[in-house]
């Protein structure tokens, strides 16, 4: 028995070592993913140019705004902090919270899936973000760690795979073609802009059935208190969503709205219906707007925010 346990432990250690090695490998990809835009976004948040309007949430935000429109109409510096819904709402909000200053307005637009089950704790993409900003590990709670733990081996081996491929077959990126979903696909505000002139693709539709998790609301109420203590304001806005996905998930979305209205201690700017747009206004997923959709949403939000921004 002792021998069996000893061998099993030694064997398992070997596997852990392999996984750990994968986590430590540097990213040698010639074109880094959009996750790396976080570094620039943090610089933008850090800039000392007065109180800001900070847009945050998942990819519905990075793919959903033309911040220049908002900045012009509201006469306030705008930073689009959002990248990926898969980071989880908790991580997204806590990451931005580090940079919140007096007078800032945080316009939070979570994806609907953030309110369902444990999605607010994050999935595999959270690991990508930690790879970009290892310091952010201090934001991770045990709950988040457990939620993403199952993705760690796969993530680690994907790193090893990518590292080996790039070593064996190094490729030089074409500087004239930035492409979408890369570190450089964002403009000076943090909006993903390289897709603005691209043709629409087949939309990825979503189905987010499940129970509304009250812990998300509790978390948002708590962080709101902290934001208020800093002299800033949290405002919640619903994400833009294509008609087809909205119709499929209407009951869940309305349940989320009802729960938020009943339980939130902070301002809710709008209703889900305000941002249900025709499928033709979306680029590649049910949340990612194309150029026209972005303009519509940005103008709509700017109008609604006018009273909040003084």
């Amino acid at each position: 028995m002792k021998q069996f346990i000893k061998h099993s432990v030694v064997f398992a250690m070997g596997v852990f070592l392999l996984v750990f090695m994968g986590l430590l490998l540097p990213n040698n990809n010639p074109v880094r993913s959009v996750d790396y835009s976080l570094l620039k976004k943090h610089e933008l948040l850090h800039e000392n140019n007065g109180s800001k309007l900070i847009l945050t949430g998942g990819s519905n935000v990075i793919f959903g705004f033309n911040s220049k429109i908002l900045q012009t109409k509201l006469n306030k510096p705008v930073v689009n902090h959002a990248i990926h819904a898969g980071y989880g709402l908790k991580y997204i909000v806590e990451d931005v919270f580090q940079y919140v200053k007096k007078g800032d307005i945080i316009l939070l637009s979570p994806e609907y899936s953030h309110f369902i089950d444990n999605n607010y704790l994050g999935k595999e993409p959270l690991l990508f973000s930690l790879k970009v900003k290892p310091n952010n590990i201090r934001l991770i709670s045990l709950g988040q760690l457990l939620n993403v733990a199952e993705f760690i081996p796969k993530f680690s081996f994907d790193r090893i795979k990518s590292f080996v491929y790039n070593k064996l077959k190094p490729s030089k990126p074409n500087k004239n073609e930035i492409g979408n979903y890369t570190e450089f696909s964002i403009n000076e505000f943090g909006d993903h802009y390289t897709h603005w002139d691209d043709k629409n693709k087949n939309l990825t539709l979503y189905n987010f059935n499940g129970e509304v998790n009250m812990k998300v609301i509790e978390f948002l109420n708590n962080i709101n208190e902290e934001i208020e203590k800093k002299g800033a304001q949290l405002i919640l806005s619903f994400p833009s969503i294509c008609e087809t996905t909205y119709e499929t998930n209407k009951n869940t979305i309305l349940k989320i709205e009802e729960t938020l209205i009943k339980n939130c201690n902070f301002k809710i700017l709008d209703t889900p219906e305000d941002y249900v747009f025709n499928d033709s206004l979306f680029f590649d997923t049910s949340y990612h707007l194309n150029k026209i959709g972005i303009k519509n949403r940005s103008e709509k939000i700017a109008f609604k925010l006018k009273n909040e921004v003084k």
């Binding site: 392999l18 081996p153 796969k154 081996f157 795979k161």
Partner: peptide
């Protein structure tokens, strides 16, 4: 063999 199989599974 076991490690190879584990690597294949993860990879």
């Amino acid at each position: 063999i076991y490690y190879l199989l584990i690597i294949i599974i993860f990879w």
